[in-house]
Design a protein around this nucleic acid. Structure first.
Lengths: 208, 208, 208, 208
DNA sequence: TGCTAAGCGAGACGGTACGTCCCGTCTTAAT
DNA sequence: ATTAAGACGGGACGTACCGTCTCGCTTAGCA
């Protein structure tokens, strides 16, 4: 049972907010405990008591921003995949370019941090899209022998790659094209899927 | 016409070697000019004369490691793509995980560095694979209306993603699967390509 | 009321010791903050926090070596002068030749440092011998009209000169001879002083 | 027989002049080969070809300034000593305070430089005054058993000490007082000397 | 109510690495 | 062979900021 003076919860919130402010305005390289403490109106030891390193701090702050992604389930495999991917594309767009790469690089060497990074920031949308693929297999839209993990990687890596290294984040059209090209290779009956998608969403933007 | 004492080329080599040593053993975060100079048996000013920042230094060192990739051209589209990608997969495998991400994050904000990074480290294999796609279109293996840039992104991002964030670098089998799934969606006559590939390489490892 | 982490007194001592080590073994020209920090097992900022310049550092270290000189007071003017001078001669002998000259040269241009040098290193023995001269006047051993400051300069400059520029530091005999020659010119009754001195100290070494 | 392009003697002169300029205006600590070369309108290698070190350079420059001191010989021991000392006092007054001390400190560790320093800068006036003392002994003005080297040291050290460490260089009156106090202790018949001196120089300034 | 233990703001600490200055040397092309 | 010119290899500089520690005070829960 903890004795002594309890921690001031306002400091927790103020620090996380300050971290997001620094990351958005200056990037991960400028994320110093000293600056965070200053912007949060507190002191370095108060921060260090809560998060042992800059990495933990950044992870906690970014996790608090990227909330749960709603998973669309309309019955249209192509539509769901496209929309589902765009949901987490939108989430990543809210993080300043370079921040994720720098943070990951800083975490890569420490298994605990590496796992925390992946679990916190990369896993949720990946799981969501994975569930869509499962449903597509169940519906008979997708060949059952496809390596779902690989397909997930191909889709998410495209998003991440363009977010991290591209001249610009991926566009909605690019997502649609990519989904279509990939699905054409692994769907049971791609023309039917496409027709279904068009019937549902025309004159929506999500088609070739 | 350059006058004055010429630069000692041994120092150039020793510094680049020291940089690779530090990157391999300790990662980009531990790459300090002071440590590099110490390991190279020289001093900081000698390093600063050659490369103005840590970023330039790391770029030069990594570029010296990733030599030119030979582009296979056997006439078999599937084989060439698979082998060509594996060539630069192998190159990236020689770089400690996290190093590229950290370096890119450090370069992202400065256009000159960002361009240097992409040109030096990402462009060459991308160009090589792009040429393969062009040849495939010329041969009539690939539909002419595909967005080659997007296909390139899908392939290279998969490699990079697994190199950067994956629990392990991508395997040869995964590359083969990915190429096949993707080509199935965008080839003019995929079964013919597959048959050709098998005829050539059976009992090679590069097939489903 | 001082707040913050208190300074580690062991570092103070280690640094001063390291300074004396460098001065003794290599001289003032080799006294660099970096080397001192290295030998003291600490770092440059820790040194700079304590002493702002190399000059302050050297002054502090030398002052810590030259402790207070006890002032003899036996009633014998000749003996006291001779012994009193030898006390600080001995002190200067503990400093490597050239160190004082170089340090002073470095301090000469800055009044604060110049005063600190003189006050710390030259003043104490000078004051002590000055008190002896006062007592000698009080006792009627010395003519009251002599310029005490000039006499002090003649004695101390002899010591310093030989310490700084001589082929060897001044000897005890030289001190005795110099005191006798000078006192012969300014004493009220020199033969009496000499007789008194011999009566006291025979067969001591302090006589012609 | 020297072949090749002959050395430009104007560079020798320009360099020495530049050295004196730097020493007078900035002191020994600021005497760098680079600055000397710049002020002399030449380059560093041209300086290094002529004088191997900064010490040699400073010695040569100062020696070129301190010309031969004329030795007065009027027959009046007190007058000659006083005037003779003032001659080299005047010479030292032309050198910025601290320069000699710093230079000596820099030379002290190398026997060759140390000897060059003493021979070039300190010996000439000392020899001159030494000759005066010899004449005084010959004339019967001075006791033959005095240690001439010690007397020389007492006089010259007084001058040097005040030049180096005093709040002001020694005054003419101080020199007179010091000579008189010292001679009173070692002359054969001091009152006679004093009378002779006054007879010659009254109402000159050189007496008590 | 008084004691104890932990959190708090404040700020100096020990230390790493920085980027720069200027040293004395070396190389080149021309004289 | 010496010259002017200028870049080189290198030692040391003084600084910025890191993450840690110590302080004196404040704030609860336990006795």
């Amino acid at each position: 049972m903890p004795t002594g003076r309890p921690r001031d919860p306002q400091i927790d919130a103020a620090v996380l907010e300050a971290v997001l402010g620094v990351l958005d305005e200056a990037g991960y390289a400028r994320l110093t405990i000293e600056e965070v403490a200053r912007q949060a109106g507190t002191t370095k030891p108060a921060v260090y008591r809560r998060w042992p390193t800059r990495q933990h701090l950044a992870l906690a702050a970014l996790a608090s921003r990227l909330g749960d992604s709603p998973v669309p389930d309309t019955g249209c495999t192509l539509c769901d995949l496209g929309e589902g991917i765009l949901v987490f594309v939108a989430a990543f767009r809210r993080i300043r370019p370079g921040v994720l790469a720098a943070l990951f690089a800083d975490c890569a060497a420490v298994p605990e941090l590496r796992d925390a990074f992946l679990t916190t920031l990369f896993e949720p949308p990946r799981t969501a899209v994975g569930r869509m693929l499962d449903r597509a297999v169940d519906r008979g839209d997708l060949r059952a022998d496809v390596d779902r993990a690989l397909v997930l990687d191909m889709l998410s890596s495209l998003v991440h790659h363009r977010a991290l290294f591209g001249p610009a984040p991926i566009t909605d059209d690019d997502v649609a094209h990519a989904v279509e090209a990939l699905m054409a290779g692994i769907a049971v009956d791609y023309p039917r899927l496409l027709a279904h998608s068009r019937a549902l969403s025309d004159p929506h933007h999500l088609h070739t």
